[in-house]
């Protein structure tokens, strides 16, 4: 489902003496449907960078990044948008939304973008928000004013609103209490059960042990250190 072949990444900082920073090289990995893979490695190893490349957010210098058969390295913007809409979900650590939009609309939006009717999309959003223990009185408010943990749960609800065949999870359990952590891990297990291919970054080792089938140390893709 997700297939990376010899992917590399450099950053060229034109405005800082054209410094070229080589971040990743020779990344080859593959995730099958129903499989959950954890990216591990020290801070700065490039876990988030790799995840952003798989989402099409960062541009790879070379290699192929196949998601559902489409190569994101060479795809047109509209193809990447279509993949993000239909195939590839992403739960980031940060919530980025239009300020005054209600939480319900934020969560329902991925479904609305797929053409789901407004009431059906809202019903799904309500169910997820309830499951993630966001108090109902907050649903009509914009999540921009919420606490970190609440924002993260809104982000998770948004990411699980549509049953994406592939999912990227960046620290989904980081600032959650035990009860909500269990809910999120349950959602991940359900997604695996329906056949989603998942790549995640988890600092929470117990969570990693519970949901992940294998681990990939991103450190081994650091240029110069690679075997």
């Amino acid at each position: 489902m997700i297939d990376l072949q010899d992917v590399s990444k450099t950053f060229t900082l034109h405005n800082q003496g054209s410094a070229v920073i080589e971040v990743l090289g020779g990344v080859t990995l593959s995730v099958r449907p129903g499989e959950c893979v954890a990216l591990t490695g020290a801070s700065g190893a490039g876990k988030s960078t790799l995840m952003r490349m798989i989402y099409g957010n960062y541009r790879a210098r070379s290699g192929r990044i196949l998601v559902g058969g489409t190569d994101l390295v060479t795809a047109e913007p509209r193809e990447i948008i279509a993949i993000r809409r239909e195939t590839l979900g992403y739960v980031s650590q940060f919530l980025r939304v239009v300020p005054r939009v209600s939480t319900l609309d934020v969560v329902a939006e991925p479904l609305r973008a797929l053409g789901t009717a407004a009431d059906a999309a809202e019903a799904r959003a309500r169910a997820l928000l309830a499951q993630l223990n966001i108090p109902e009185r907050l649903w009509s408010l914009s999540p921009t004013t919420f606490s970190g943990g609440e924002q993260q749960r809104v982000n998770i609800a948004r990411g699980f609103a549509h049953p994406y065949p592939a999912l990227l999870l960046d620290e989904p359990t980081a600032s959650l209490d035990a009860a909500n952590r269990a809910v999120v891990l349950g959602l991940i297990e359900q997604a695996k059960a329906r056949g989603a291919a998942i790549i995640g970054i988890f600092h929470d080792e117990a969570a990693r042990a519970q949901v992940c089938d294998r681990e990939i140390d991103v450190g081994r893709f650091t240029p110069g250190r690679a075997a």
């Binding site: 952003r52 099409g56 957010n57 960062y58 913007p77 990447i80």
Partner: peptide, 8 residues
């Protein structure tokens, strides 16, 4: 892509 141009 908008976020790609802005973020990378």
């Amino acid at each position: 892509l908008t976020d790609q141009v802005l973020d990378d």
